Amino acid sequence: MTTAHPVPRDPATRLRETLARLTAEEDVWLATAHPRHGPHQIPIWFLWRDDLAWLCTRATSPSVRNIRADPRVRLALPSAADVVIVDGSAEPVPLAEGPAAAYTAKYRWDPAAEADTHLFLRVVPRTVLAWRGEPEFPGRSLMRRGTWLA
């Protein structure tokens, strides 16, 4: 299925709408890689707060293992018609040091109540790309080297 977006958004509108999606969306694709084990990609809940992405997972997950070996990650919202891709670096953070209350409020799930030990992954974005179809390829970079462009 294709969605036509004949008129490209201006940079301010594209940034505003991208930040709104990052705040409102519940799911994101997290891609990590390990030198020996290769790529790993999962859908996961996330919270966008203060220009950071926060994800929560088991401390023993392949994603955490990969991030400990190589902190580079890619996040992608689940739409090919309204693309948002965030490249950045991730760091495991204990639950007590992350936005536990905001995460629990958004998902009605308390990771501290789980039998498995969970932790947060704090993702610091370095690059953010957003576009709706080919007309928006020019200007799709909204962030470079951690600085917003619009």
Rank of each mutant, 00 (worst) to 15 (best):
W45T: 06
W45N: 12
W45K: 02
W45G: 14
W45E: 08
W45I: 03
W45V: 06
F46Y: 15
F46N: 10
F46T: 08
F46L: 11
L47M: 06
L47R: 05
L47I: 04
W48N: 03
W48H: 01
W48P: 03
W48G: 03
D50A: 14
D50K: 02
D50G: 08
D50M: 01
D50Y: 00
D51C: 11
D51Y: 10
D51F: 09
D51E: 15
L52K: 04
L52H: 11
A53M: 08
A53Q: 07
A53L: 15
W54V: 03
L55W: 08
L55V: 11
L55K: 11
L55Q: 12
C56A: 13
C56S: 13
C56Q: 04
T57Q: 05
T57D: 06
T57C: 14
R58E: 14
R58G: 15
R58S: 15
R58I: 07
A59C: 12
A59K: 07
A59S: 15
A59F: 02
T60M: 10
T60S: 14
T60G: 08
T60L: 10
T60N: 12
S61W: 07
S61V: 10
S61G: 11
S61C: 11
S63A: 15
S63T: 12
S63W: 02
S63H: 13
S63C: 10
V64F: 05
V64W: 00
R65E: 06
R65C: 04
R65T: 14
R65G: 10
R65I: 10
R65D: 06
N66F: 00
N66K: 00
N66G: 09
N66S: 13
R68E: 15
R68D: 11
A69E: 12
A69L: 01
A69W: 02
A69P: 05
A69I: 04
A69V: 05
A69C: 01
D70R: 12
D70K: 03
D70W: 01
D70F: 05
P71Q: 09
P71R: 12
P71C: 02
P71W: 08
P71Y: 07
V73Y: 01
R74Q: 13
R74V: 13
R74H: 05
R74I: 00
L75G: 03
L75W: 02
A76P: 05
A76S: 14
A76H: 06
